[in-house]
Design a protein around this nucleic acid. Structure first.
Length: 218
DNA sequence: ATCCCGAGGG
DNA sequence: CCCTCTGGAT
């Protein structure tokens, strides 16, 4: 069956409300510079931001450059991030990625999608987050939250994250693109949750096309 | 499609 | 016990 989708004026209204409620949304991953942001996002795969911040707090206090990370080494890095899921692969990727930044990019985080996606542990979603947060570009990173909301609300239905991203690129009004990722991710994290969406206190529940919408009982 | 892989919630 | 959490590589 063809997925129902919101109309342009409804989408504009949706983002108008998001902006009114939270004019300058921010991500919840802690970082001190573009490099630590990149590391934090790599570590955040299949992990909670709280869990990532707990590990990166002590780490970034001393290790905030690619050189210091390579010097720290994989085994030591693991001692910091052992409480995060998938830590072996992540530690290996962070060390390798740091060495590549030193060798090819003068220890800077490249402001370039292709260059970012060549780094181990960095895919399209991570590259989009870095471009958006570190460099202020209007990219819309589609993670598990955006993918769910795009389909559930009718904002941008798609079978894959990339499909949802390209559709968002088309339907989100230009003036809202820069913050679309943050608004949607925060909404997905606290209100439009995967398990038990709290529709009664959702500020766009009258626009949303979710069929099993929970209704408030007066 | 499957693996990686710990913490927290229900 | 079950599932989910700002995925990526094979």
């Amino acid at each position: 069956m063809a997925p129902r989708r919101l109309k342009p004026d409804q989408i504009t209204e949706m983002f108008r409300r998001f902006q009114a409620a939270d004019p300058a949304p921010e991500g919840e991953l802690d970082y001190v510079n573009p490099y630590t942001l990149l590391v934090a996002v790599v570590l955040s795969a299949q992990a909670t931001d709280v869990g990532v911040n707990r590990a990166t707090g002590p780490l970034f206090k001393f290790v905030d450059t690619p050189e210091k990370m390579v010097e720290l080494g994989e085994a030591e890095l693991i001692s910091y991030i052992r409480t995060i899921g998938l830590y072996r692969m992540k530690a290996r990727n962070v060390i390798a990625l740091s060495q590549i930044l030193i060798d090819r990019y003068g220890s800077e985080v490249p402001r370039d999608r292709a260059a970012l996606e060549e780094l181990p542990g960095v895919g399209r979603k991570t590259a989009n987050v870095v471009l958006n947060i570190a460099f202020g570009e209007p990219t819309i990173a589609v993670d598990t939250h955006l993918f769910r909301l795009g389909n559930r609300t009718g904002l941008a239905p798609g079978k894959t994250p990339l499909e949802v991203e390209l559709k968002l690129e088309k339907v989100v009004p230009p003036e809202y693109k820069r913050h679309a990722h943050h608004w949607l991710i925060l909404h997905g994290r606290y209100v439009c949750k995967a398990r038990k969406p709290e529709c009664p206190r959702c500020l766009i529940n009258d626009l949303c096309l979710f069929k099993e919408k929970t209704v408030s009982v007066p």
